[in-house]
Computed example of a mutant assay.
Amino acid sequence: MSNEMYPKSTLELAQRRRELEPKCEAAFQAFSQVVFADGALSSKTKQLIAVAVAHVTQCPYCIQGHTKAALRSGATAQELMEAVWVAAEMRAGAAFAHSTLMLDVVERSTS
């Protein structure tokens, strides 16, 4: 990554994580493999969902990793971009939907 805020993910850092907590690391890796395996949803679809979610959570490591995994699963650039647009709509929609909380406070405050 070119952004200095986030260190580049390296094999050495991954190894250090494994050394610090090997049982949790192994459990997380096993969980991840099960989650992203073909099932009712294809691995490709799951990776497209992951790319969209990564954009909503704004995790640069997840965006990069799941984009690569989606491409390996056969996703196209167009499918990836469409997934990002779905994420953008959901994030904007959530902000809009939560306006009901603001309106409720306004209503109670002015009554």
Results as ranks from 00 to 15, higher is better:
residue 87 A to N: 06
residue 72 R to Y: 05
residue 103 L to F: 15
residue 75 A to G: 00
residue 49 I to P: 00
residue 51 V to H: 00
residue 97 A to W: 15
residue 69 A to I: 02
residue 85 W to Y: 12
residue 111 S to T: 13
residue 109 S to F: 13
residue 35 V to C: 13
residue 17 R to G: 03
residue 60 P to Q: 01
residue 30 A to W: 05
residue 2 S to K: 09
residue 101 L to V: 14
residue 90 M to Q: 03
residue 78 Q to D: 11
residue 64 Q to N: 06
residue 106 V to A: 11
residue 21 E to V: 12
residue 37 A to G: 02
residue 38 D to E: 07
residue 107 E to S: 12
residue 47 Q to E: 15
residue 93 G to N: 10
residue 81 M to N: 09
residue 46 K to R: 04
residue 30 A to F: 10
residue 67 T to V: 07
residue 71 L to K: 04
residue 3 N to Q: 14
residue 58 Q to N: 15
residue 9 S to F: 15
residue 63 I to S: 01
residue 27 A to V: 13
residue 61 Y to E: 02
residue 20 L to G: 05
residue 69 A to T: 01
residue 54 A to V: 04
residue 97 A to P: 04
residue 30 A to T: 13
residue 6 Y to G: 03
residue 64 Q to R: 04
residue 70 A to C: 03
residue 36 F to E: 02
residue 86 V to E: 03
residue 10 T to A: 08
residue 91 R to N: 09
residue 5 M to K: 14
residue 23 K to C: 08
residue 6 Y to H: 06
residue 86 V to G: 03
residue 18 R to A: 13
residue 100 T to P: 02
residue 47 Q to R: 06
residue 14 A to P: 02
residue 88 A to P: 02
residue 106 V to P: 00
residue 81 M to E: 08
residue 81 M to S: 11
residue 102 M to K: 12
residue 95 A to M: 15
residue 93 G to A: 12
residue 97 A to E: 09
residue 109 S to Y: 14
residue 82 E to R: 03
residue 19 E to N: 11
residue 97 A to Y: 15
residue 39 G to Q: 01
residue 56 V to Y: 02
residue 82 E to S: 09
residue 3 N to R: 09
residue 26 A to N: 11
residue 102 M to L: 14
residue 11 L to H: 14
residue 28 F to Y: 14
residue 67 T to P: 02
residue 102 M to H: 08
residue 82 E to Y: 04
residue 80 L to M: 11
residue 17 R to W: 09
residue 18 R to M: 14
residue 51 V to Y: 00
residue 99 S to N: 15
residue 24 C to Y: 10
residue 4 E to K: 09
residue 80 L to E: 03
residue 84 V to M: 12
residue 56 V to W: 02
residue 10 T to W: 08
residue 8 K to G: 07
residue 56 V to T: 06
residue 51 V to A: 00
residue 105 V to K: 10
residue 1 M to N: 06
residue 51 V to S: 00
residue 29 Q to I: 15
residue 48 L to C: 05
residue 10 T to G: 06
residue 39 G to F: 04
residue 39 G to N: 03
residue 65 G to S: 06
residue 80 L to R: 02
residue 28 F to H: 07
residue 57 T to P: 00
residue 66 H to S: 00
residue 20 L to M: 11
residue 54 A to Q: 00
residue 74 G to N: 09
residue 108 R to K: 15
residue 91 R to T: 14
residue 88 A to N: 12
residue 49 I to W: 00
residue 87 A to Y: 07
residue 37 A to V: 03
residue 81 M to R: 08
residue 110 T to E: 12
residue 87 A to Q: 08
residue 84 V to C: 08
residue 79 E to F: 07
residue 92 A to F: 14
residue 86 V to Y: 05
residue 65 G to H: 01
residue 78 Q to V: 14
residue 13 L to Y: 07
residue 40 A to C: 11
residue 53 V to W: 00
residue 91 R to A: 11
residue 107 E to T: 10
residue 6 Y to L: 07
residue 59 C to N: 04
residue 64 Q to K: 06
residue 30 A to H: 07
residue 31 F to V: 06
residue 67 T to N: 01
residue 94 A to F: 15
